[in-house]
Design a protein around this nucleic acid. Structure first.
Length: 872
RNA sequence: GCGGACGUGGUGGAACCGGUAGACACACAGGACUUAAAAUCCUGAGGCUUAACCGCCGUGAGGGUUCGAGUCCCUCCGUCCGCACCA
């Protein structure tokens, strides 16, 4: 029989059109079936999709298609995270408009996504730069403002003096702006903030409920929030030494038990006490300025020596009025953590110890490590910051660390300095409020107006949306909104006098903090259709890159709560993503020409293998250097264009390769050989199904009364494979599911060339199962095969076949037989054989007799259906 | 420095709860078909030893628990990731 090769690129277009015409991927918000919301992180429209997108969206699509086949009402939408700096930079460089550039990119990328054959519901598509989207975001902002969850404050920011904008921390590289290369300045600016810290505790505690999130992500978020339980302690200051108006110093500590080891106090250079003291001390003032200047570069921070300056101020120990402790200004104290002031206990803190050694301050051991003797214990180069027994600490001596912490806290809570307690228990967080102001055009305008008379006035709801002006100029750096001739000049909504619009726009992470809610009703008049949100949320499976472990995923968790607390979504659902999966990166070898320039994989030819493997630059015929395997990136040029792969091999091939071999959470290495292997498998399946279609029983034939052993065996394999593939797809172990499909394909191939009673019927069943198994992964090929098997329906619409549980367990099983824990043989025996029967059968085995060497069996361990171990 | 993850053939990886380690794929070798190549099909393969069977060794290293450890515990080595003067 002559078989034609399956022409993937041509047939894929056909099936994509069939699906589109049938409109089968549109979910109804009103459907009696159980719902399933599958979401992949939406892309930034940079211009073209890359292999990372292919991997991400393939995984989501497999799950979406599988869930649909399992009878769920599946929501699987797609949109565009379309605001952001690249569009504005493109506008500057190419003299176009951010909107035009963005929409052209969206069109191109949408075409690419469609060529992948994804089961997406395009009717719900939107871009965050659509007025229809950002007007609702402005409404949400106003509600947050009203609730006190959005506020303005002055804070230090990274300022790029060339581009004239605020930069995020990630955009500052070695103290310089990533685009301009200019030295970044610390600038005090009044900015808008979202009060994420109002939810610190809740965001931390709720992590434990996210049992379908990767442990790693939960841990990263927990560390980021950084809760610590401690004590605020107010120290009196010796009046003769302190600047006027400064009678006390409040510090924060998590180790109040080490209070009797205190040998110095340290405050941040920008602490009010430091500033006050600096006014009377020129050298100190200089020191403070020096510290602040160093604050900009991260690299400098890491290596900076611990430096201090004795202010001459003396603090009074809370437990001893006569005890004076010197107050230093130190470069390693951060103003925005705790109170910006500490007490130093050198024996119990490495950093304090280094400081004490440098300034020759006393080092008194106060915690005795377990197993040490007080008489002989000394502190050398390393502080002991663990738990132990208190020494040299008066009334704390002999206590454990924990008891001492409690004792000090209780005593200081009752002690008074002035009219207030000396000590207050306090939980501290590392988490900071989220600064959302950006001095940029291409973002969601912040809907407020500044009036000289009335101050900050929210834009009235009836005046929403605040649209971006289309006629902005991008000919020079800075914020086009700020220098637009008319846009910002508006009358004050309250007093009608001339006023100015806020010209900052929102951080684009705000846009992506609620798009998944909008997908549930993308055309609703209000930001959220509560009924739709109630029906669909939470997202049942969210899939994206690990790089969003903190930022996007933490912001979204916060924003969803803020939306709940401003009445936009149900209050008792707190977490928007029930399950999260973070997929690995797509990597590729790197290549360099003899001149040292990076080369695209398409620009080289590889010969030989192993040690002899060589790369040749095609253009010059000269050898090229093969470099490390790294994440695909423009800078290293180790890119493979999804378009090229799809045009040559087909989308199914790219999809299958992405799912094969590598566990989805790990990195996958893209190789030509791997793609070719996937391509071969596609042809193999096609040939096999053609073969089956020729020899199998007709479609819909009744199961024969009796099946021969070949047919029965094939049936068992088919049902087992179906069950195993289903379980592994549900667990997102796609690589294992793929392996099981390979294995079953081998079985089916072998069976197709045999003959036996009822085998034609079993072949049809097995063939259909195979097609349905590959349906979620290689949907086009599956449709083609389905048609070849005589159907005019769509696999994409077929329910997942039900595996017969009776076929999943074998009557006879093989169990291993060990002697003294070493495998010696195996035993084929009835699955429900009694223990005695198994023992007897094992002892009869020649191999066992030989291994026993005449010794009697002392003990026989039988684990039913698993193993026998004869102990001699 | 702190926190976490991982370490299995030539390669990617599989192994549910502690129960036959290496499924499946890639690469490789041999063979069939072919004038030849491609494509396809068949066969082989962890290491050592052996003509072969047998046997021994084997999941980064060392130790422990157990009838039995890739899996659990301890120590060490290596790789990767996150945070980093956080009081």
């Amino acid at each position: 029989m002559a078989t034609e090769r399956y022409n993937a690129p041509a047939r894929e277009k056909h099936w994509q059109q069939v699906w589109e015409k049938a409109g089968i991927f549109c979910a109804s918000n009103d459907d009696p079936r159980p719902k399933c919301y599958v979401l992949e992180m939406f892309p930034y429209p940079s211009g073209r999709i890359h292999m990372g997108h292919v991997r991400n969206y393939t995984m989501g699509d497999v799950l979406a298609r599988y869930k649909r086949a399992k009878g769920f009402n599946v929501l699987h939408p797609m949109g565009w995270d379309a605001f952001g700096m690249p569009a504005e930079n493109a506008a500057i460089e190419r003299k176009t408009h951010p909107s035009r550039w963005t929409h052209a990119n969206i069109d191109a990328m949408k075409g690419q996504l469609k060529s992948m054959g994804l089961s997406l519901e395009w009717d719900r598509e939107f871009a965050t730069c659509d007025v229809d989207y950002y007007e609702h975001q402005q409404k949400l902002f106003l509600d947050l403002l009203n609730k006190g969850l959005a506020y303005r404050k002055s804070s230090k920011v990274n300022w790029d003096p060339v581009d004239q904008t605020v930069l995020a921390n990630e955009q500052v590289i070695d103290g310089r702006g990533w685009r301009s290369g200019a030295l970044v300045e610390q600038r005090e600016l009044t900015q808008w903030f979202f009060k994420i810290t109002a939810y610190s505790d809740e965001l931390l505690d709720a992590l434990s409920t996210l049992d379908k999130w990767p442990e790693k992500v939960r841990l990263m978020q927990a560390n980021w929030i950084g809760r610590s339980d401690g004590l605020l302690i107010r120290w009196g200051l010796d009046k003769r030494t302190a600047p006027k108006g400064h009678a006390e110093l409040e510090i924060y500590t998590t180790r109040p038990d080490t209070l009797f080891g205190a040998s110095f106090m340290a405050v941040a250079p920008d602490h009010p006490l430091a500033q006050a003291a600096a006014k009377e001390n020129e050298a100190l003032a200089e020191f403070c300025i020096e510290c602040q200047r160093k604050g900009t570069s991260l690299a400098e921070l890491e290596t900076a020596e611990k430096k201090g300056f004795d202010t001459g101020i003396r603090a009074i120990h809370p437990f001893d009025k006569e005890w004076r402790v010197p107050v230093y200004v130190a470069n390693f104290i951060l103003m925005d953590y705790g109170t910006g002031a500490i007490f130093g206990c050198p024996s119990a803190d490495q950093r304090d110890l280094e400081f004490a050694r440098a300034y020759e301050l006393p080092v008194v051991p106060v915690i005795l490590p377990p197993g040490e003797k007080a008489e002989t214990f000394t502190i050398g180069a390393t502080a002991f910051d663990g738990e132990g027994t208190l020494i040299n600490s008066r009334f704390l001596d002999g206590m454990t660390t924990r008891d001492a912490v409690e004792e000090v806290a209780t005593r200081l809570e009752h002690a008074k300095l002035g009219s207030r307690p000396v000590g207050t228990r306090k939980v501290n967080y590392r988490l900071r409020d989220w600064g959302i102001s950006r001095q940029r055009y291409w973002g969601c305008p912040i809907p407020v107006i500044h009036c000289d008379e009335c101050g900050v006035v929210p834009v009235p709801e009836k005046d929403l949306p605040v649209r971006l002006p289309e006629d902005a100029a991008f000919d020079r750096p800075g914020n086009p909104l700020d220098r637009h001739p008319t846009w910002k000049h508006v009358p004050c909504p309250a007093c009608a006098k001339p006023a100015r619009r806020e010209t900052d726009t929102m951080d684009t992470f705000v846009d992506s903090s609620w798009y998944f809610v909008r997908f549930t009703a993308p055309h609703a008049k209000d930001p959220v259709d509560k009924k739709a949100a109630d029906y669909w949320l939470p997202v049942d499976q969210y899939i994206g890159g690990i790089e969003h472990a903190i930022l996007h995923l933490l912001y979204s968790r916060f924003f969803y709560r803020a939306m709940a607390d401003t009445g936009h979504v149900r209050k008792n659902l707190r977490e928007p993503f029930a399950a999260l999966f973070t997929q690995g990166m797509v990597t590729h070898e790197t290549y360099k020409s003899q001149t040292g320039a990076w080369l695209l994989p398409a620009e080289i030819a590889v010969e030989g293998e192993g040690e002899a493997r060589k790369a040749i630059e095609i253009a010059t015929g000269k050898p090229a250097q093969i470099g490390a395997i790294e994440k695909m990136s423009k800078s290293r040029k180790n890119l493979v264009d999804p378009d090229d792969i799809i045009a040559r091999w087909g989308a199914d091939c790219a999809r299958w390769f992405m799912l094969s071999d590598s566990p989805p959470e790990r990195d996958v290495i893209w190789t030509e050989a791997g793609v070719a292997g996937a391509g071969r498998f596609i042809q193999r399946v096609w040939r096999l199904i053609e073969d089956v279609a020729e020899t199998a029983a007709p479609r819909g034939a009744a199961m024969p009364a009796a099946l021969g052993p070949e047919a029965a065996e094939l049936r068992r394999s088919a049902h087992k494979a179906l069950d195993a593939v289903a379980r592994n797809v549900e667990g997102l172990r796609f690589n294992v599911a793929v392996a099981q499909i390979y294995e079953f394909t081998n079985v089916l191939s072998a069976a197709a060339s045999k003959s036996g009673q009822g085998l034609d019927w079993a072949l049809r069943e097995a063939g259909e199962f195979l097609v349905q198994m590959i349906g979620p992964m290689m949907p086009h090929l599956a449709e083609e095969c389905w048609a070849r098997l005589g159907y005019n329906t769509l696999v994409a619409n077929r329910p997942w076949p039900v595996a017969d549980p009776a076929l999943l367990v074998d009557d006879k099983i093989t169990i291993a037989v060990q002697v003294n824990g070493k495998r010696r043989d195996e035993l084929v025996i009835a699955r429900d054989a009694a223990t005695e029967e198994i023992e007897a059968a094992a002892l009869r085995l020649e191999t066992v007799v030989r291994a026993l060497e005449g010794r009697p069996a002392k003990k026989i361990i039988v684990v039913p259906q698993r193993i026998v171990n004869v102990v001699a």
